[in-house]
Design a protein around this nucleic acid. Structure first.
Length: 408
DNA sequence: TCTCCACAGGAAATTGGGGGTT
DNA sequence: AACCCCCAATTTCCTGTGGAGA
């Protein structure tokens, strides 16, 4: 029997360096931002509370890595100087309200879940946790935009000392958000009085990305394995899109996989191009599969219309298709208002395109919905959702005239 | 020019469910 | 068992919008 499929060529030296949760030891491109953080934090060594700060910037701009790295240094220095300083990093990705965030912090540190009590009680327990940690405590709340407008926590923590919720402890809070509108929605007066500094992480340009990639390549791949044209290409493709380092690294990683599959001894620019397509397709699939049933139905309605070539379509047309599909799969159909909301959410995450145009014969304004992602890829994802199996025929109706029925 | 009406979109009320205390 | 807290999704209700056709 041929076992060559199990062979591993030595392209990668250390794949972990390319994984999402790898924290680089240095980011020279973010040295300025780091110094800002240091300035805010080092006040703790003078006996003052650290500054409250907001880090602002899109995903993949090194916000989390910079903070973690800086906090790490801060702790080491504090330790050397015998300062009673503690730091707490918390990602709010799984919580969507201040209440849940406070509960999670309490649960992480005491082991008991405080949910069920009033918000006030939960906050008090959270402050108890802080007081136990040290004389000065820096709290980092990553992905804080997740809590939306239930942001009491952001007003409460900076005031805790004045109000007497914490007695001996000085609190500093660092919020990280990739949604700039989140910051605008905070009460402007509270924002300026409670938060001393916002640090903006601008998108990397192609040159920055290239430097970042080169450092990773050195660690992740064997020497000379990555062709010299491949790196700038990854950087350029990502810079053209969003200047996202995560994306650039994903391209590179996947390019390595492609090279392995093809039995190539080098990672070439052709591999990068294949990788880009794969990564993008995978991103679409991931974002769709995480949606709710109603989102899926709304999307399926647009896809169904797209299969027939009936896009862009008005909300009403999408809604009619939606009700039919909902009936097919035996799910309660919801109001048009709500379906429109779902369509708008799909627009927000880049799957649909909802353009608002002046109305036709009846005036007003109307949305015209179209698919922003590749029809074939989206259709195959829709088909893979078992819940929608009873509606496949309807969605594919008209496909044979359009010769796009053969996706799997 | 005026009215009409399908749609947009904000706000409030409702529904239902998860987790508590007493 | 009766009652409290938090929350997401949805419905209900309402006010605007603006070109076509009277």
């Amino acid at each position: 029997m041929d076992h060559s499929a199990w062979d591993v060529q030595g392209l990668f030296a250390d794949e972990d360096v390319l994984h999402e949760h790898y924290t680089p030891t240095e980011i020279p491109e973010r040295e300025d931002e780091k110094q800002e953080l240091v300035k805010g934090l080092r006040r703790a060594f003078r006996g003052t509370a650290p500054k409250n700060m907001f880090l602002l910037g899109k995903t993949g701009q090194g916000k989390t890595a910079t903070v973690r790295h800086t906090l790490q240094e801060f702790s080491v220095v504090a330790n050397e100087r015998n300062e009673d300083i503690a730091t707490l990093y918390h990602s709010c990705s799984k919580q969507n309200s201040s209440y849940q965030v406070a509960s999670a912090i309490v649960e992480n540190h005491t082991g008991s879940d405080p949910r069920g009590h009033s918000q006030q009680v939960v906050f008090e327990r959270m402050y108890d946790v802080f007081e136990e940690m040290g004389e000065t405590v820096v709290v980092v709340l990553d992905e804080i935009d997740n809590i939306g407008d239930r942001d009491d926590l952001l007003y409460d923590i900076p005031r805790a000392r004045n109000v007497g919720d914490v007695e001996g402890t000085k609190l500093g809070i660092i919020g990280i958000t990739n949604d700039s509108s989140f910051l605008q929605d905070l009460d402007p007066r509270a924002k300026s009085s409670l938060y001393d500094r916002t640090i903006q992480f601008d998108a990397y340009d192609a040159h920055d990305l290239e430097q970042i990639l080169r450092r990773r390549v050195k660690k992740a791949f064997e020497d000379g394995v990555v062709d010299d044209k491949a790196i700038p290409l990854c950087a350029a493709l990502a810079a053209r899109d969003m200047g996202n380092a995560r994306q650039a690294i994903d391209y590179l990683y996947e390019a390595g996989e492609v090279a392995l599959e093809e039995g190539s001894e080098q990672v070439l620019d052709t591999h990068v191009r294949t990788a880009e397509e794969r990564v993008e397709r995978r991103n679409v699939i991931d974002s769709i599969s995480g949606l709710t049933t109603q989102d899926h139905l709304a999307l399926a309605a647009v896809v169904s219309l797209a299969v027939c070539g009936d896009v862009p379509a008005r909300t009403r047309e999408v809604y009619v298709e939606y009700t039919d599909i909902a009936h097919d799969v035996d799910v309660n159909a919801i109001t048009m208002k709500r379906v429109r909301d779902h369509l708008l959410e799909l627009d927000l995450i880049g799957i649909l395109d909802g353009s608002k145009r002046a109305g036709g014969s009846r005036g007003g304004k109307r949305y015209y919905w179209d698919l922003r992602t590749d029809l074939g890829a989206t259709l195959s994802v829709i088909q893979s959702i078992s819940r929608l199996s009873a509606a496949q025929d309807r969605i594919l109706a008209g496909a044979e005239n359009r010769r796009i029925g053969e996706f799997t």
